[in-house]
């Protein structure tokens, strides 16, 4: 009877104008049977968090290519927590150096970060694993 469908918000914050990566990942999630909410380019952290709450997603996936990951991930995480939405898993991908990935994940600003070469199947499997 009851069926939980995984819902993911794929967000594209910041100023860079490329959302090809975000669209590829959105399609991969859809093909894996998930519901993907896509909100378009140039989203602010506030917009992302509000959409995530209204859509009651399990996961927010942010694609960051602008180099602003060290401010964007902590900010979105902070807003999720402030709004009592700390149950929502924050993850992401983009051109993020190894040491920044380590710092962001260690500090809990992102649960996992994937670099552009990552296999979409692995990302899908990871999400299935963390959403209970």
């Amino acid at each position: 009877m009851e069926e939980h469908k995984i819902r993911v918000l794929v967000a594209k914050p910041g100023l860079d104008g490329h959302d090809r990566g975000a669209k590829v990942i959105a399609r991969a999630f859809r093909d894996a049977g998930m519901e993907v909410i896509y909100t378009g380019l140039h989203q602010t952290p506030e917009q992302i968090v509000e959409a995530a709450i209204q859509e009651d997603v399990d996961v927010v996936g942010m694609s960051v290519l602008s180099g602003a990951h060290m401010t964007l991930f902590p900010r979105v995480k902070e807003l999720l927590d402030e709004n009592g939405a700390d149950n929502i898993i924050l993850m992401g991908g983009g051109t993020i150096p190894e040491e920044d990935i380590r710092e962001l994940t260690e500090k809990g600003y992102a649960k996992a970060l994937f670099t552009p070469g990552a296999n979409t199947d692995d990302i899908v499997a990871w999400i299935r694993g963390v959403v209970q």
């Binding site: 469908k5 959105a26 399609r27 999630f29 859809r30 093909d31 894996a32 049977g33 998930m34 519901e35 993907v36 909410i37 896509y38 909100t39 378009g40 989203q43 917009q47 959409a51 859509e55």
Partner: peptide, 14 residues
């Protein structure tokens, strides 16, 4: 086929 969906209507209402 997959049960998945891309829901993109919010783009116009951001």
């Amino acid at each position: 086929f997959t049960g998945g969906a891309i829901l993109g209507d919010r783009i116009r209402m951001q």
